[in-house]
Design a protein around this nucleic acid. Structure first.
Length: 470
RNA sequence: GUAGGUAUAGCUCAGCUGGUUAGAGCGUCGGAUUGUGAUUCCGAAGGUCGUGGGUUCGAGCCCCAUUACUUACCCCA
């Protein structure tokens, strides 16, 4: 048997002890905030039936689904004609399950299946990995964890305001200060489209203006022109995109412009609803005493693709770091419609932990403590010492101290190197000399200092030292 | 799916217009130091140069194919 080079699928990663500790630090921060705001945890299976997943993410999304080959003789129902007809015909016969692509669709499925048990409004959070058969690149993985929080069964804009508060709190707690929470409303975008008087297609418009910060005015103009928008329409689009000033000022300018273009006829829907919604969210935030309005940016160009959002939409960008959005979300009015339960409104958002990790690493914002190592290593001098050292080790653990004995008798140099590399702060030396005197030596590896003390006092001393570290 | 780039030791990379036995740093292991690490010194192990073919007297280097990785686009967290 020839030795093969081991590998993992591209776009996936191993996480070593330090990385796991750091990821847990991020998960913990997010979880605590979600729970403080009243969200309850939910977990769903890694795999879903393909019928649940397909058609929910558009044609491109379907291609990015990982499908799971049926067990047993998966090819037994495939005919020669199927093969000739291509993958589309063969797929449903060989695969009936797939890996979850996001957490929102499984959540919708869960809500529909449990509609009789749920008390509305239902607030849930979910922290689980998702899989996409994408081409990996910077900040883009094929297996990554999403942290979603959604409320369904209420149209209250209080939820939107609280989302802003949660995003701000999580990112601030993680040490980030320079980030922008972008907010917009699908109604506002629709208003811009309606103001054009029926030129081009609405999705084309949204996709194009979403790229403004990336490809600039020129790029967006070209793209719109290619998509059949007239120069006149394009000019009008940019008039809207150039609204400027504070949150209130932008709202006022848009209201005036929309009024002039006659798209505010229905005061309870579309553009008018968009403006009043945003106004109200801002009002709630003021009532909450939200301090960081400088981080909240009403961005008319924010569109978030072609997804199912119908109301407010959010996206968070860390400034001065080359990284896509680390959080995003919005309100949807018909999430569960595809599963036969129409008219259920909800709003939710998601943190991309893997991207947050990359950002924190780049900005060196991980705290020192986010490493897991035992507090103390007991040196192993000889077999005879075990009668002294093993009871001591047991007592340390019973006292709640993380400790270990170097598993084999070997040169002290090696044991010291081991402690050093693992980041173990204290080393306990109980060799023949110390044992004869009923003493132990405790070495602080960081300071390089040693103290000798009666073996009966070690545990209380270590407890003091570990308390100091917090 | 589209377009580039890269592939040499466990890791990060040198390797001249094609020329004899492919190098360094870090890491690993051993020793200086049989009871003291992170700084010193000495030594050792470790590579069929991603894979297959071609050109050539001769290929790590040139050509073709292939695979993997990577960056950007599309899309997205």
């Amino acid at each position: 048997m020839s030795a093969q080079k081991p590998s993992i699928p591209r776009g996936t990663r191993d996480f070593g002890p330090q990385q796991v500790a750091r990821r847990n630090y991020i998960f913990g921060t997010i979880r605590r905030v979600f729970e403080k705001f009243g969200y309850a945890p939910l977990e769903t299976p890694t795999m879903e039936n393909l019928s649940v997943l397909t058609g929910k993410y558009g044609e491109e999304g379907d291609q990015l689904l990982f499908k799971i080959l049926n067990s047993g003789d998966f090819a037994k129902d495939v005919t020669a004609e199927d093969l000739a007809a291509g993958a589309k015909k063969v797929l449903p016969k060989v695969a009936e399950k797939g890996l979850r692509y996001d957490l929102t669709v499984p959540f919708a499925r869960y809500v529909v299946m449990n509609r009789n048990l749920l008390t509305l409004p239902f607030k849930r959070y979910q922290i689980q990995p998702v899989w996409r058969a994408d081409r990996p690149q910077r900040g883009r993985y094929r297996e990554f964890v999403q942290c979603d929080a959604d409320v369904v069964g209420t149209t209250s804009l209080l939820c939107e305001a609280e989302i802003v508060l949660m995003i701000d709190e999580v990112l601030s707690t993680l040490g980030l200060t320079d980030f922008t929470i972008k907010i917009n409303h699908r109604g506002v975008l629709s208003g811009i489209y309606q103001a054009l008087g029926g030129v081009g297609s609405e999705p084309d418009l949204f996709v194009a203006i979403d790229k403004l910060d990336k490809i600039g005015v020129e790029g967006v103009s070209n793209e719109l022109r290619q998509r059949g928008f007239t120069d006149e329409a394009i000019e009008k689009v940019f008039n809207y995109l150039e609204v400027d000033g504070s949150f209130e000022e932008k709202l006022t300018q848009l209201r005036t412009a929309f009024g002039a273009d006659g798209v505010l006829a229905d005061a309870t829907a579309g553009p008018a609803k968009g403006l009043t919604d945003l106004e109200q969210v801002q009002g709630y935030l003021q009532d909450f005493g939200f301090e960081n309005f400088q981080r909240l940016d009403f961005d008319v160009t924010l569109a978030r693709g072609l997804s199912y959002y119908t109301g407010c939409i959010f996206e968070v960008k860390v400034n001065n770091v080359q990284m896509g959005s680390i959080s995003g979300g919005g309100r949807y009015d018909n999430l569960t419609g595809a599963f036969g339960m129409p008219g259920l409104s909800g709003v939710g958002f998601s943190f991309g932990v893997d991207r947050i990790y990359d950002v924190l690493e780049e900005l060196q914002l991980f705290p020192e403590g986010a490493v897991s190592a035992p507090l103390c290593l007991i040196a192993n001098f000889d077999q005879e010492g075990r009668a002294t050292v093993l009871p001591l080790l047991r007592q340390m653990r019973n006292a709640g101290l993380a400790a270990e004995l170097y598993p084999e008798v070997s040169k002290l140099k090696k044991q010291f190197e081991y402690a050093d590399k693992r980041g173990i702060r204290y080393m306990l030396l109980a060799g023949p000399d110390e044992r004869a005197a009923g003493l132990v030596k405790l070495r602080d590896m960081r300071a390089g200092t040693e103290v000798t003390l009666p073996s009966g006092e070690v545990i209380s001393r270590l407890l003091e030292l570990s308390a100091e570290q917090r």
